[in-house]
Write a protein that binds this DNA or RNA. Structure first.
Lengths: 239, 239
DNA sequence: CGGACCATTGATAATTGTCAAAATTCGTGG
DNA sequence: CCACGAATTTTGACAATTATCAATGGTCCG
């Protein structure tokens, strides 16, 4: 709960909304109207935002931090389906359709969210139809990613998959540097393993091997440097 | 090309539309209006309806037969993403969003389709907003299935997955019989393998083993009998 | 600095993939 | 309706990859 006291409530709201792609088509006036509707929440690393089976009555937009959305098997194995970060949203399925949460959502870091209740969300869609278009587009992206992930886990070898996840993270979290691209990994080794459908130790081994080959450089547990993304793309397989 | 000559064109259209869940909320009068818009096509087993990367300008609804939607890796491995059959549709992504086909679609049997052009589809959505709701619902189902499939391939063992696909097919294609449930498999062994992300031979071995254990009975290559679905569910894992 | 947590490495086992051959099934045409 | 050839499936033997178990090493944070 480290709310930065020096930021006024209004600034936070503005900030929040500007980060959200689905609201990005609206102008300042429209944003002001929505401002009041948004309800903020904060979570600590490890907190669970939503449990599988929960009845959800709001759409959650990530304002700060990132979360993992996953399913567990009865014997405790975890499959991560999505990593949501700033600007991403979830819970819309439970408003459009009459179903409870199909995955658990857990904070990977300190997280701040913007929440819109079912009613508010519906009013928003009604007032600003262009938002619906953005949502459909984002759901399409998500479906494409799931389809690619399914192919990845289904028929591609572990090296391919590791390469793919590095590219995915480089695009989403990478910062260009004179030495290459620095990635702040949102997931631990175990998290990466659970995202790729392999064992923790396998990820360690592959990373070690890639470091030996000069493909990556481990700066810390949660930070790696990619000197040459082309080489990673070669490993991922053009597809 | 075995069009049943004894059925008039009108009957075929009616038949088509009645099979399509997304149109099922419309009454006869409304259906009649749509009738004229639909364009029919026929394909033989093995024909490709859509290639990855194709520009699609219509939504395709399966009227008869079934198809597989899949992605290929550069080394020729195939991952089946969906099996679409009577009443299912595809291609909507390419109308809602500006993208080309993300998967190849191939006929598993003789197939008849009902096609709606982009413009016709948009008019339909405009005239009958309840169709949009059905589509959103179906896309939600599809997303749920993809999420489950990802979990399946990611963390569940092959026996679990075989069990799951048998249940899936039993629900979709199963016919109750005094001896149990008879399933007309839409996919060959190789198809099942490419759906589950395992090798052809592995599917054969697991089926043989299950037959030895009395869990299934192979009636022919494309037809199996499940005497007791509960036992299959036990293998699939309750989840 | 200490302790908890996370990551790495090694040794081994288990599962599944691969290759090859045999058996079965299917569809076609006689 | 049967027979033939093609296609598919099954089975076996073996190899490869990855999971598992166990121990060590490293990192982060109060």
């Amino acid at each position: 709960m480290t709310t930065p006291r020096f930021k006024c409530k209004k600034c936070m709201d503005r900030l929040c909304m500007h980060k959200v792609p689905i609201l990005s088509s609206l102008d300042i006036e429209d944003l002001k109207k929505i401002m009041g509707l948004i309800h903020h929440k904060e979570y600590n690393k490890g907190d669970t935002l939503v449990f599988v089976g929960d009845t959800m009555d709001s759409v959650v937009i990530i304002n700060e931090g990132s979360v993992k959305a996953y399913k567990n098997t009865s014997d405790g194995r975890e499959q991560i389906l999505y990593v949501f970060s700033e600007g991403d949203f979830f819970g819309e399925q439970n408003l459009f359709r009459n179903q409870t949460a199909t995955y658990t959502v857990e904070a990977l870091q300190a997280v701040k969210t913007c929440n819109l209740s079912r009613k508010q969300f519906q009013e928003l869609l009604y007032s600003f139809p262009e938002i619906a278009v953005k949502i459909i587009d984002e759901l399409g992206n998500r479906m494409n990613r799931l389809e690619n992930a399914l192919q990845s886990i289904g028929v591609r070898n572990v090296d391919n998959r590791i390469g793919s996840i590095l590219i995915e993270f480089a695009e989403k979290y990478g910062i260009k540097d004179e030495e290459g691209i620095i990635i702040q990994l949102p997931l631990s080794r175990e998290g990466i393993a659970n995202y790729l459908g392999v064992a923790r130790e396998t990820v360690s081994r592959k990373f070690s091997q890639m470091e030996n080959d000069g493909l990556i450089r481990s700066l810390s547990n949660k930070e790696i440097l990619i000197p040459d993304l082309d080489k990673i793309e070669a490993i991922a397989g053009i597809n």
